[in-house]
């Protein structure tokens, strides 16, 4: 189960599991959001490398326009994945509060 919605202007909330079966839908959604600036992971349980690719592709597009994504409420397990992949250096990140 994966859900993605624009919670408020430019703030995207992802929930459930972002895996390879959902990555295409997630990318299509991100591509149509106007000026996205924040992705909220508060309800995201799982992300695979296919999900990371969605974030990286979006970030590359945004950086050509001089902006970028902030990813907030990242669970400790997903934070590990971000560190192992260097994504904590590519995005502004804030972990979930304990």
């Amino acid at each position: 189960m994966f859900n993605i919605k624009e919670e408020e202007k430019g703030v995207v909330l992802m929930s459930g599991r972002l895996d390879a079966a959902q990555a295409e839908r997630a990318q299509a959604f991100m591509d149509q959001v106007k000026d996205p600036h924040t992705v909220d992971f508060a309800e995201l349980d799982y992300i695979s490398s296919a999900g990371l690719a969605v974030l990286l592709r979006t970030q590359k597009q945004l950086m050509t326009q001089g902006s970028g994504l902030r990813i907030v409420n990242i669970s400790p397990q997903i934070m590990d994945i971000f560190r192992y992949s260097g994504f904590d250096q590519i995005f502004q990140v804030s972990p979930a509060e304990a």
Binding site: S48, S49, L52, A53, L56, R57, Q59, K60, M63, I81, Y84, S85, G86, Q89, I90
Partner: peptide, 23 residues
């Protein structure tokens, strides 16, 4: 192995899977 220190512009999309599995 993937070079995770590359800039956003130079980072390839994908290729991370095995790098992460090893961890």
């Amino acid at each position: 192995e993937v070079d995770i220190g590359q800039s956003v512009e130079d980072r390839p999309i994908g290729k991370l899977g095995l790098h992460l599995i090893r961890r």
